[in-house]
């Protein structure tokens, strides 16, 4: 189970990370002055509020059209540059009540702290930083895909400007600095308006591996987020749709929510 939940908090940030949209986004006139690294740094540093809560539903569809559903509730809060999050699974029933707690640190040399609670065993346990190339919950997203990827991990190059779904975007090539990573290349389309990656293509040594595309992006309470997106595996025909059911920012989440004591209860009070 540990491998199915690690990184889910990051998933939330990936799909629903907010930008202080218009205020933070540069105008088209600034485009030529920005490098690929600067654009991705802006994406990384966009405002996400002090805390967030949301519900997420994933629909996993295989090549034959068979579907599986995964649903969860997520809460996270900033502590300076660090971040704490807790997530509880709602569906399917066999993992209902499974909880995941993470304390994520900005400092590159400091390992995140992560715990998992399994209701069937009624116990919590420490888990390691999950492998970056591992798929979570059977979806087509790896932890690497959904994580809040620091710009320094890639070498970026601004290729050109393009429209995607009617939105002006920068097309950026990202090559991992660490050659052992599962992808050799990622091409990302960053919306100028929302400062979010709304389309991406992932390549390995054999060619195109997966494609990501956001299909619903909108602004709520001053924060922009991706509400529906899909990752499709070109090799297997398997795809995953991710849907944010509700998203709320700055609700004043209590610090006691992000503790192992909460995890051990097996429910969010």
């Amino acid at each position: 189970m540990k491998n199915t939940v690690s990184g889910l908090l990051a998933l939330l940030l990936f799909c629903a990370a907010a930008g202080a949209s218009d205020a933070a986004a540069p105008t088209s006139g600034q485009t030529s002055e920005l490098s690929g690294r600067e654009i991705m740094t802006r994406v990384y540093n966009r405002d996400e509020g002090d805390d967030r809560r949301s519900t997420i539903t994933m629909t996993l569809t295989n090549k034959q059209g068979r579907q599986r559903i995964r649903a969860m509730e997520s809460y996270s809060k900033n502590y300076g540059q660090d971040r704490k999050g807790i997530m509880i699974f709602l569906d399917p029933a066999d993992v209902k009540g499974t909880m995941y707690l993470s304390w994520e640190y900005e400092s590159p040399g400091r390992e995140d702290d992560k715990w998992l609670y399994m209701p069937a065993m009624r116990k919590d346990r420490r888990i390691s930083g999950a492998s970056r190339n591992e798929y979570f919950m059977g979806s087509d997203f790896t932890y690497d895909d959904i994580g809040r990827r620091h710009p320094e991990k890639d070498k970026q190059r601004l290729l050109k400007e393009e429209k995607v779904r009617g939105l002006d975007c920068w097309k950026i090539e990202c090559v991992p600095v660490d050659r052992s990573e599962s992808y050799t290349l990622r091409t990302a389309w960053v919306s100028k308006e929302y400062l979010l990656v709304i389309k991406a293509e992932y390549f390995d040594k054999d060619g195109l591996l997966k494609t990501f595309e956001a299909t619903d992006i909108h602004t709520q309470n001053g924060f922009s987020a991706i509400y529906v997106c899909e990752m499709a595996n070109a090799a297997t025909g398997h795809k995953t749709e991710m849907r944010i059911g509700s998203m709320r920012y700055n609700t004043g989440l209590n610090d006691s929510l992000f503790t192992v004591a909460t995890l051990q209860r097996g429910r969010i009070q």
């Binding site: 702290d113 992560k114 420490r126 930083g129 492998s131």
Partner: peptide, 11 residues
Amino acid sequence: FSRPWSDFVFR
């Protein structure tokens, strides 16, 4: 005790 390190957890 429980102590994570890289992809390992020692307990």
